[in-house]
């Protein structure tokens, strides 16, 4: 229960820097208490959105995170102006978050295991993915491949950033091309979808983790309300496109409460271990067309033909489009 402060005017009862109203249950929550519960409402379990920095602190072994490429900064190539100019929006976001763009990446340890980690920050222009965010995701993936350490991406994003136009759209390609290399290298990739994970972020790296985790009630969807309603006028039921919806539709493996997220990831990392010598059959770049043809066939027909005992899905990563 919230502590009520007696003898004070109503309007001062809950100064906003001390109290936060829970959108789930309308309780007034004391911020310091909320920080202790990892920004999860102790009454109803509502998961508040958190900054990238706080997310990193909550997940990794204390003091283990070494940020990389913090100096990457966005540019306004299109000269984009809507109600405000893109540079103005960037500056406001930079000043309010202390970040240069909406993602932070680096290497860290979780349960003593070294990982490559990229975390998105919704408070920076809705966590939208422009060129810097795409670049950081790509670099996190490339570091994972180079060092043969697991890749962990925590998404929190409204999708591609409109102000960078089709450059933002191309970040879907950039990030997916690197994720394909992560998979071909048999380096594990865990995707954590938090509220919200939508649009082009959901429709690229976030949805294709080896394991997809989601926080409770996180909004996860491709098409937005306004687009859906405007185009086809469809009524959407409550709970539509929330994390639980995706469990029942088969695109999320597990819903994990924030308090258990770190331990769950550490447990998964105990199973998903990159083979020390890298990929055996599928060299990321085999040599010639005949070989591609041959190995695609053998991969499809006889996954274990190279004598290795491993699941078929990792044996033929090039040609396989089995589950599309």
């Amino acid at each position: 229960m919230p502590v009520r402060l007696p003898f004070r005017p109503r309007r001062d009862a809950y100064p906003p820097d001390l109290w936060t109203k829970c959108p789930g249950c309308a309780e007034m929550l004391f911020n310091k208490q909320l920080d202790k519960t990892l920004r999860v409402c102790p009454h109803c379990g509502h998961h508040f959105r958190i900054s990238a920095r706080m997310r990193v602190e909550q997940l990794v072994d204390q003091g283990s995170f070494v940020e990389r490429d913090a100096d990457l900064a966005p540019v306004d190539t299109l000269g984009f102006v809507d109600l405000k100019s893109y540079p103005d929006r960037l500056l406001a976001a930079q000043l309010s978050t202390g970040l240069r763009d909406a993602a932070v990446w680096g290497v860290a340890a979780m349960g003593g295991k070294r990982i490559s980690l990229c975390v998105m920050d919704f408070f920076f222009i809705g966590g939208s993915m422009g060129s810097v965010v795409g670049e950081k995701v790509a670099r996190a993936g490339e570091a994972a491949v180079a060092e043969r350490i697991p890749l962990l991406i925590v998404s929190s994003s409204g999708g591609a950033r409109m102000q960078e136009g089709t450059y933002s759209l191309m970040q879907l390609v950039k990030t997916m091309s690197v994720v394909e290399r992560v998979k071909a290298a048999r380096v594990p990739f865990i995707s954590v979808m938090t509220d919200p994970t939508t649009g082009g972020v959901f429709a690229s790296f976030a949805v294709v983790g080896d394991v997809n985790l989601a926080e409770p009630n996180a909004l996860i969807r491709f098409a937005g309300d306004r687009v859906s309603a405007g185009t086809i006028g469809e009524e959407l039921p409550p709970g539509y496109a929330r994390a639980e919806f995706w469990i029942s539709h088969g695109f999320v493996d597990r819903i994990v409460a924030r308090a258990k997220l770190r331990d769950e990831i550490v447990s998964l990392l105990g199973f998903l271990i990159a083979p020390i010598n890298g990929p055996t059959e599928p060299a990321p770049n085999p040599t010639s067309r005949p070989r591609a043809f041959f190995s695609a066939l053998t991969g499809a027909l006889s996954p274990d033909s190279n004598g290795e005992s491993h699941p078929a899905d990792t044996a033929a990563p090039r040609g396989g489009t089995t589950n599309g």
């Binding site: 809507d82 109600l83 929006r89 408070f123 222009i125 809705g126 939208s128 994003s157 409204g158 999708g159 591609a160 950033r161 409109m162 102000q163 933002s168 939508t198 649009g199 082009g200 491709f222 098409a223 937005g224 309300d225 306004r226 687009v227």
Partner: peptide, 9 residues
């Protein structure tokens, strides 16, 4: 709160 700058399709 939905800051501008997101894409919906």
């Amino acid at each position: 709160d939905v800051p501008p700058g997101r894409e919906e399709v």
